[in-house]
Simulated assay, not measured.
Amino acid sequence: MTVPNDWPELRELYGADPLPDLDTCDFFHVHVDERGTSVTFALETSRLPAHPKPQWTEAAYNTLRFWIEFSGVADLRVAGLLADAERAVRIEGGGDGGGTADRLKVSVTGETRSIAFSAAASRVTQTRVHLKGSI
Rank of each mutant, 00 (worst) to 15 (best):
T2Y: 11
T2K: 15
D6Y: 06
D6E: 14
D6F: 08
D6K: 14
W7F: 15
P8Y: 00
R11Y: 06
E12T: 13
G15I: 05
G15T: 05
D17L: 06
D17R: 12
P18G: 09
P18V: 04
L22V: 00
L22M: 13
D23Q: 05
T24P: 00
T24E: 10
T24C: 00
C25Y: 04
C25W: 06
C25G: 09
F27C: 05
F27R: 05
H29V: 00
V30F: 02
E34P: 00
R35S: 06
R35Y: 07
S38I: 08
S38C: 10
F41M: 10
F41I: 02
F41W: 15
E44C: 07
E44A: 04
T45Y: 07
T45D: 10
S46D: 15
R47H: 09
L48E: 13
P49V: 07
P49R: 14
P54H: 02
Q55M: 10
T57R: 15
A59Q: 14
A59W: 05
A60I: 05
T63V: 04
T63P: 01
L64T: 06
F66N: 12
W67S: 15
E69F: 00
E69H: 13
F70D: 13
F70V: 08
S71T: 14
G72H: 05
V73Y: 11
V73M: 09
A74M: 06
L76G: 01
L76Q: 09
V78C: 09
V78D: 00
V78A: 01
L81W: 05
L81N: 14
A83V: 11
D84G: 07
E86N: 05
R87M: 11
A88H: 12
A88D: 15
A88C: 05
A88I: 09
V89R: 05
V89Y: 03
V89A: 10
R90E: 15
I91R: 11
E92K: 08
G94D: 12
G95T: 04
D96N: 07
D96F: 08
D96C: 04
G97N: 14
G98R: 01
G98D: 02
T100L: 03
T100I: 09
T100H: 11
D102F: 01
D102S: 12
R103E: 12
L104N: 10
K105D: 03
V106N: 06
V106R: 11
V106S: 09
V106D: 11
S107V: 00
S107M: 01
T109Y: 04
T109C: 02
T109Q: 12
E111P: 05
S114M: 08
S114C: 11
F117W: 02
S118R: 15
A121L: 08
S122L: 04
S122E: 02
S122F: 00
R123Q: 14
R123G: 14
R123M: 03
V124E: 08
Q126F: 01
Q126V: 02
T127P: 13
T127E: 07
R128F: 01
R128I: 03
H130T: 09
K132Q: 15
S134L: 05
I135P: 14
I135F: 08
